[in-house]
Design a protein around this nucleic acid. Sequence first.
DNA 1: TCAATTGTTGACATAAATGTTTACAGTTGA
DNA 2: TCAACTGTAAACATTTATGTCAACAATTGA
Lengths: 88, 88
Amino acid sequence: MSINEKKINSYKMLFGDNLKKLRESKGLSQFELASTMNDIASNSKIDKTTISRIENGRTNVTLSTIIKLALALEVELNELFSFNLENS
Amino acid sequence: MSINEKKINSYKMLFGDNLKKLRESKGLSQFELASTMNDIASNSKIDKTTISRIENGRTNVTLSTIIKLALALEVELNELFSFNLENS
DNA sequence: TCAATTGTTGACATAAATGTTTACAGTTGA
DNA sequence: TCAACTGTAAACATTTATGTCAACAATTGA
């Protein structure tokens, strides 16, 4: 695996770590976060399983899910990406 | 469609608009951007068709593709999300 | 003690992103 | 004039995210 491929994996892990941090700072369980996301978009049926997979970097979350996460957590989209490889 | 669902669509469009703006500011064609992304990750075979679909909000781009876009454009991840619904 | 909550994982089905090819219209530069 | 480039799109194949259900260990609170 090339350096850049490792970097891509690292970013996925960091995204998950940051999501977990934001979720816990709001005092939400994975189940509660999923439920809130589903309240926001009626066509959404996010499961707590999906949250777990994202937080542990086991999946490639899609943009629409990222947006729902931001709306449910009441943060700006770019706050979900406020981390960097260097200070981690 | 609920207000929140419209908001989700708007964010997808804004992401595409912002990507296009960043790409053009670097003087890259959709083909060149795709090629650069493929140079970064050897397992990646992004096609210019995919770039077009993302820029026009016709697809739900995944996190790994978002990361490759940032690496290819040489911008921070959150720069891809530096926009908001209000001033658009 | 024990029922409820929480996070994780596995298995499988379905929906959707992406790969790939082809085509086409508009533009650009020689 | 015309070949090359550019962005878009359709059609179909393949890969993968997500949905769904079940199970499990650890924790918590009554």
